[in-house]
């Protein structure tokens, strides 16, 4: 057996490995490398960790970085507290056998996910516009005009508003994943529970939820990675300066401004790479915590 040639393994893996290396691994490591250099008077020179010392040591840079990280964290918290529970609830409702038009609801809720960020950002900006938007009109029609505020323009609401827009766009993803997980629960288990007197809500909490926990775990980690890589929605809705007063600035927009420059600010690829590296480290740490601390302890059930 051992003498049998394994060459075919390499041959079949090669295309994927080569493409992935060329478009993902090489750029990734090159970015990490770039963060160790500085450029002065057109000459690039190795600077060790100087860019990171600036990023975390210089009060201006570090303030911008921690502000962006804090905003990013809040962006993630809103998704975890709003998007995922709503996704689970929607999936539970959709998987109810007696619900009519389930396919219609499923498609309607999932459709925003396939829209472009630019369209979503622009459409919501118009909906919420204090001048032309329909939001003030709708609130007025139900006598709640006083509740309206130019949310995207207020420091205290802008980030939460954008996070909720993103939730609106992506709630279809946890819904679909959980829906699939719920459908895969065998009827026998639920029937066995029924015989023991566990029905309705209690069946959901005691039987279904434990069985879909691994899916919720996967959704959480996808949300985490997606949110800490987010950029498009903020850029489309608020521009690269992530106003008002950087209250919607997340790591992605901070990276963009630094790397590519903005208006009279020239781009600095090296500082930008340092921020990209920090983002990579944060996401890597988050994923590792999940993989080693949570996933290994999660109990799995074999049907």
């Amino acid at each position: 057996m051992a003498s049998r040639s394994r060459l075919h393994v390499a041959v079949f893996l090669a295309p994927a490995v080569l493409v992935y290396t060329a478009v993902m691994i090489w750029p990734l490591f090159n970015t990490l490398r770039l963060s160790l250099y500085v450029e002065a008077d057109g000459v690039r020179s190795f600077a060790g960790l100087a860019n990171f010392a600036t990023l975390f040591g210089d009060p201006r840079w570090s303030e911008a970085f921690w502000n962006a990280l804090g905003n990013n964290f809040w962006f993630f918290v809103v998704h975890m507290l709003v998007q995922n529970p709503i996704g689970v609830a929607l999936a539970a409702i959709l998987s109810h056998p007696r619900l009519r038009f389930a396919a219609l609801y499923r498609s309607a809720i999932f459709i925003p996910t396939i829209l472009s960020f630019v369209i979503v950002g622009f459409a919501w900006k118009l909906i919420l516009s204090p001048i032309w938007g329909i939001a003030p009109g709708i609130l007025d029609a139900v006598g709640l005009k006083a509740l309206f505020a130019p949310w995207l323009g207020r420091e205290e609401y802008a980030l939460t508003t954008l996070a909720l827009i993103s939730v609106w766009q992506f709630v279809g993803i946890p819904m679909m994943l959980i829906y699939a997980a719920l459908l895969s629960i065998p009827e026998e288990i639920l029937e066995a529970g029924e015989i023991d007197g566990i029905t309705g809500w209690s069946a959901f909490w005691r039987i279904k939820l434990p069985l879909i926990l691994p899916s919720i775990g996967i959704i959480s980690i996808l949300t985490f990675v997606g949110n800490f890589n987010a950029f498009d929605l903020i850029y489309a809705a608020q521009g690269a300066l992530a106003g008002p007063d950087f209250s919607t600035d997340i790591l992605g927009t901070f990276l963009y401004r630094t790397f590519f420059g903005f208006q009279l600010q020239l781009g600095d690829p090296h500082m930008g790479s340092a921020i990209a590296t920090a983002m990579f480290a944060i996401i890597l740490a988050g994923v590792c915590i999940y993989l080693f601390a949570i996933q290994t302890r999660m109990r799995r059930y074999q049907f």
């Binding site: 900006k125 516009s129 204090p130 001048i131 032309w132 130019p150 995207l152 323009g153």
Partner: peptide
């Protein structure tokens, strides 16, 4: 400035 100028854009 107009109502909600905080969210008013340049084209607005």
């Amino acid at each position: 400035l107009g109502d909600g100028f905080e969210a008013q854009t340049y084209p607005d």
